[in-house]
Amino acid sequence: MRESLRSAGHALQVAALALILFAGALLAAGESPLHLLLALLRGAFGSRADLARTLAGATPLIFTGLAVAIPFRAGLFNIGAEGQMILAAFGAGAVGAWCTGLPPVLLLPACAAAALAVGSLWAGIAGFLRGRLGIHEVIATILLNFLAVHLAAYLLRAEGLHLLLGQEPKSPALPDGVRLGEIVPGSGVGTALVGAVLLAAAAEFLLFRTRPGLALRALGGNPRAAEAAGISPPRVILLSLVLGGALAALAGLQQVLAVHGSYLEGFSPGFGFTGIAVALLGANRPLGVVFAAFFFAVLRSGAFAMDALAGVPREGMRLVEVMVILLVAAERLRSRPAPSGDEPEEGT
């Protein structure tokens, strides 16, 4: 608990510092940072609709943040959440289109199962390559991202699959019964958001209160010691990436079921990649991820208003995301012990 609080405080500092740097950049460009900040906050929280958009925007980021954070705890850098999410979303859309005969009670779980299966399989490929063949997961997941985008595009257009009906590059609309709604209409608090927060709590429990979680963290802390203690690295590598893939899949599922109502090509503005920043800012703690996801959602949601009210392009907010990544990375470098190990009293 103490660690959670400390990492939350730390994340706040980083987030604040990134915003201050951004403000400095704005000053240099002759803009008024205060004016912009107010526009940002108004955009994110100004009205009920704005707040709803912000909350809805946080949902996929919690999933993708967890999708990066959990493998990270095992020492693996899952750059592939984007691809895992896209392909999983396609899987959900396709199953939804093919099985329209099923009643919604069955169709919804079928879509979810398809998404989870596809996402964890896709990440599992990287896990297998890393665990059994020693191919670095960063390379594997990056390449799998490209593959996922093109595979989904190809399958969407494949003749025999009957997915592309109209002009738009998307799968047929799902029946209303399988759409995920909002718990309080108009609030942005969807079933998926509640699910995401609960899932983060479950991930926290998994990591810190269970044996598989301990194995995962041990592998991330010292793979050789973990192996000598009887942990099978290939198995834990596979497990952590499969979990990551399943979490990324949920982001895709949420987009299909709660936002677009079908698989829409190009639906993601980079949720998977932002997930990396979310995980970093959240210090790879599941509960930190929830906080970080909201922070980024505020930035994104407020960016529209900044664009409209203050004429600052939305991409400016990307700058803040990048600064967060750089700041967290710099912090890691600074706090990393010297090569000789700068712990107190080593060896005495």
Binding site: L214, R217, A218, G220, G221, N222, R224, A225, A226, E227, A228, G341
Partner: peptide, 9 residues
Amino acid sequence: RDQGLVLTL
């Protein structure tokens, strides 16, 4: 430090 303990745990 190499094969024995996980220092972060």
